[in-house]
Amino acid sequence: MPIKVQLAVDMTCQSCVDDINRVLGAVPGVDKIDISLDDKRVIVEGTAGPSAVLKAIKDTGRAAVVRGTGSSSGGNIGAAVCIFEEGRALAHSATRGLARFVQVSETTCFVDISVSGIANGSHGIAIHECGDLSQVPESCGAHWNPDGVKHGDLATGHRGDLGNLVVKDGWGDLAFETDRFKVWEIIGRSMVIGAGPDDLGKGDSAASKVDGGSGPGILAGVVARSAGLFENDKQVCACSGNTLWTEQRLVDQGHRL
């Protein structure tokens, strides 16, 4: 189901516009591109995830920030974001990725996850009951499982079971649609990415039946409401006074938001 992604992009001339049109035109799932040089705004429509669109623009050397996401059918049903940070001592950790959630219809949620700077291979990922990151993963509680079912895959396991994210050359992403939860049901909960792969409950160990044996949580974050389309037009961060471009460069360098 198509979604729209609104981005702020640091553009200075028509050549920037032409370059961004070119790179986005090569991204699978991008159906429509609308660029405003005066507003430094790019709107992309299609089935491509926000992380793929953002990465394509950043690969041109330009600073870019996702300002909002929403359904192509119109209206903002709901959107959320989870910022992944490292380890137990989150006060001193680095930002390593994002999960974005877009409610594209009353029944379907689009999920887009991207991480960087962790070990190559498969990493289990799940939504947990609690939004307490004081002692990851114990303080996050168990996998979110309101139906009381056994641990498993995205289709049949806990509603918080999201399967595996595969990291290659330091970068991993995962995008899918699901009708098993809605954005407003997961806001305030946490997400945890494990050190190893999730066996989807098919193993023989006790851990397989709990979390797929994915090991200790190495990245975690809290799911929070985010801006829908055209809900965020800021150019300067009210917290730090930095421009959007400075804020994004700090994030890209691994600093906390």
Rank of each mutant, 00 (worst) to 15 (best):
N242T: 00
V183H: 01
R225A: 12
T108D: 13
A8Y: 14
V167N: 01
E247Y: 06
R100E: 06
A227F: 15
D132W: 00
L37H: 07
K202N: 12
V17P: 08
G117R: 11
S116P: 00
G194F: 02
V166S: 14
C82T: 14
L200P: 11
E177M: 05
Q235N: 05
G148N: 08
H255M: 13
A224D: 14
V65N: 02
V66I: 15
S122F: 08
V53N: 06
I35L: 09
T246A: 13
G68T: 05
E247R: 15
V102E: 09
R67F: 09
I3E: 05
I193G: 02
M1I: 07
D59M: 13
E138L: 10
G148L: 11
V102R: 05
H128G: 02
V66M: 06
E231D: 14
M11D: 10
R88E: 09
V236P: 08
I113Q: 03
C239Y: 06
G49Y: 11
R96M: 07
E138Y: 11
A26N: 07
F230R: 12
I187A: 08
I33E: 10
F181M: 03
D161Y: 11
V166F: 08
V115K: 07
A238V: 14
Q6S: 13
P137K: 11
A91K: 14
I33N: 11
D233Y: 13
I127A: 04
F84M: 15
V115Y: 01
E247K: 13
G228W: 09
Q103R: 10
D204M: 09
T108K: 13
T69V: 15
V17A: 02
E247A: 12
V66Y: 00
G29H: 09
I20G: 05
R249V: 12
Q103D: 00
I3Y: 02
I77Q: 13
V65E: 00
G25R: 06
I187E: 03
L229D: 03
V5H: 02
H255C: 14
R100L: 05
P2S: 09
R96F: 03
F230K: 13
A195H: 07
P216W: 04
T156M: 12
G68E: 01
C13I: 00
M1D: 07
D112T: 06
L244S: 06
S214W: 13
R100G: 03
S240D: 01
K234R: 15
L37I: 00
V192R: 11
D19C: 03
N21G: 10
I113D: 12
S226Y: 04
S116E: 10
G25K: 08
D34M: 06
G74I: 01
V9I: 12
S240T: 15
T246R: 10
A64F: 06
V149A: 07
G75I: 11
I186R: 02
F110I: 00
K168M: 12
